[in-house]
Design a protein around this nucleic acid. Sequence first.
DNA 1: ATTCATGGTTACCTCTTGTAACTAACCCCA
DNA 2: TGGGGTTAGTTACAAGAGGTAACCATGAAT
Lengths: 137, 137
Amino acid sequence: MEEGTSKEPSHSCCTEDAFQWDTREDCDVRQILDRIGDKWSLLVIALLDNRCMRFTELKKTIDGISQRMLTVTLRQLERDGLVSRTVYPVVPPRVDYELTPLGVTLHATIQSLVTWTETHQTEIATARARYDAQVTV
Amino acid sequence: MEEGTSKEPSHSCCTEDAFQWDTREDCDVRQILDRIGDKWSLLVIALLDNRCMRFTELKKTIDGISQRMLTVTLRQLERDGLVSRTVYPVVPPRVDYELTPLGVTLHATIQSLVTWTETHQTEIATARARYDAQVTV
DNA sequence: ATTCATGGTTACCTCTTGTAACTAACCCCA
DNA sequence: TGGGGTTAGTTACAAGAGGTAACCATGAAT
């Protein structure tokens, strides 16, 4: 709306010496955030809440995930020690997925993320509508 | 290691009636998680901690982000009402990005995610090493 | 003999993301 | 007067992640 009105930059709010964590692409934190911040891992961890789930159960529950991406995502989470995979040698096959103790500690903070989105979804929807209305003028 | 040993599935741990939130692909929570859980938004929000930053400052700070993806990510965050964009009509241009009040509330939970990764990075590195060793046998 | 169920894998195609070059606007400096 | 520098972008194209659909193995049930 009134973007770029003629106030001068104040320079007062910027470059305060806030704590700056490591953002290098190859650092551990980034590599873990990349895993958490991929398309499906958040969902999987959020769903494995205090219980194990079978492959097909996860697939049915997570709307839109493909069989391939569920396999890939679960393998990555297993590799990171966040999810355990238990194969029972029965026919038809049965594979249970469950959060590890480490995964449980992550679940808590991810749950708070989900809760945040639930709490603020209308605010975001409003913001989006306002932005879109402004742009399409 | 001892995957698929001959224990029978107990059926005891599964399908407890845990609270099941909406995972439909088109629901608000999913759409917001998709934004938060993309490749760069988490990083941007985490960095905009109590201060505004200029475009180039963000670009220099976030290792590996391209100019294009920074633009795209910031526009999406602006659209969602999480980040505000202030253009000063000076030459060379100056654009400040800052968390909105809504963005600040999200920053808190994202910060806890970053803290989690910092706390558990060695555990994850260990798990990865163990997994990789097992697989390459 | 055929069908069904589960938990995958594979080949292929599409859509998102990354790369690199280009632009606009004005200042500085010789 | 004109060449170079600055910032915040945009654009065209290449690379990589993700989606789609078909296939496999196993044995039980019909």
